[in-house]
Structures are given as C-alpha cells and as structure tokens.
C-alpha cells in the first residue's frame, strides 16, 4: 500500500488518531501549511471520525489557529494597557498605512500578516511589536516604518 503523503494524514498517524490530541494535531497541520486549509480540516474530520462542525468550532475558537493563509512575515502588535498608553495605536496606524491591510489580514502578495494581541506580558518594553518572532520594544511609528521598509526592501517590493 502506498503511503499517504498528505501532511495532515501523517500528523494524525503520529498521534494515533487520538481524539484528545485534536488541538496538537491542528497545531502541527497549521505548521505544515502556515494556516488551516479547508480541505485539510475536512480530511482531519474524516480521519478522526469527529464531525466537521466540532473541528471547525475548535479551529475558530482559538486565536492561535488561522483559516486564512498567513503571510511570510508576521507583524504582531501589542494592544495591551501599558502599550496602549505608550501609543500602540500609532504603531497600528503606521503598519496599517504602510501595508494597506487591517489587523487580522494578509497582504495580497502573501508577504505580510498584521495581527494584534491584547498583552504579551512584557509591558516594561511597551509599546511592543513582534516581527517574525523577534520582540522590538519601545517602538515608535518612525521605527516601525524603518523596520517595515527594511523587510519590504529584502523582499524586493516597493511600498
């Protein structure tokens, strides 16, 4: 028998189709695709014997899961209280203007995703922007623009 090469099938195989591992399985599937494609979720539902509503419910409940394709670079802005009083709004405005997208969206060329979170737990560094997993503290809109410009230049796009 030929081995099924679909990533979600291999992930389920690894977890032994155990229902209680659903969240871990979805996490790994997301790692493979950068998001949760509809077909992958359907395959997981069929493979695990869980109805699609339940899986879709879990996938939409947690903010860690995304049903929309994510960009190559992730830009996460902290909107927590401490960051808010130090002008995280301004950072968001700048990122919005620069990328031309709303929080939660991805640019059409699939290069940038913009997201907001409510607190990163590093309030002393506020306002914080996390760009590709790297924390940038004490951000200003000007610094934000510089960092985004640098990234855009690396990707060879004009913004």
């Amino acid at each position: 028998m030929e081995e099924d090469v679909r990533p979600e099938v291999q992930v389920m195989e690894r977890y032994g189709y155990e229902r209680s591992y659903l969240i871990s399985i979805l996490h790994e599937v997301q790692k493979e695709y950068q998001y949760l494609p509809e077909q992958a979720l359907r395959n997981v539902a069929a493979g695990m014997g869980i109805s699609l509503v339940d899986i879709y419910g879990v996938a939409t409940f947690f903010k860690a899961f995304s049903l929309k394709p994510k960009g190559k670079h992730s830009i996460v802005l902290c909107m927590g209280t401490a960051c808010h009083v130090r002008n995280s709004r301004g950072l968001l405005e700048e990122a919005r203007r620069f990328l031309g997208i709303e929080p939660g969206d991805t640019t059409d060329d699939l290069l940038f995703s913009l997201d907001t979170v409510n607190c990163l737990g590093a309030c002393a560094l506020g306002p914080i922007a996390v760009i590709d997993g790297e924390y940038h503290g004490q951000m200003t809109p000007a610094k934000m623009e510089r960092l985004l410009k640098k990234l855009a230049k690396e990707e060879g796009v004009r913004k």
Binding site: V53, D54, G57, T60, F61, F62
Partner: peptide, 9 residues
C-alpha cells in the same frame, strides 16, 4: 446530523 455548530468566541 451535526450540521450546525458554534463558531468563534
């Protein structure tokens, strides 16, 4: 059936 469910949070 299980055709509808709760989504989001």
């Amino acid at each position: 059936a299980g055709a509808i469910g709760f989504f989001n949070r």
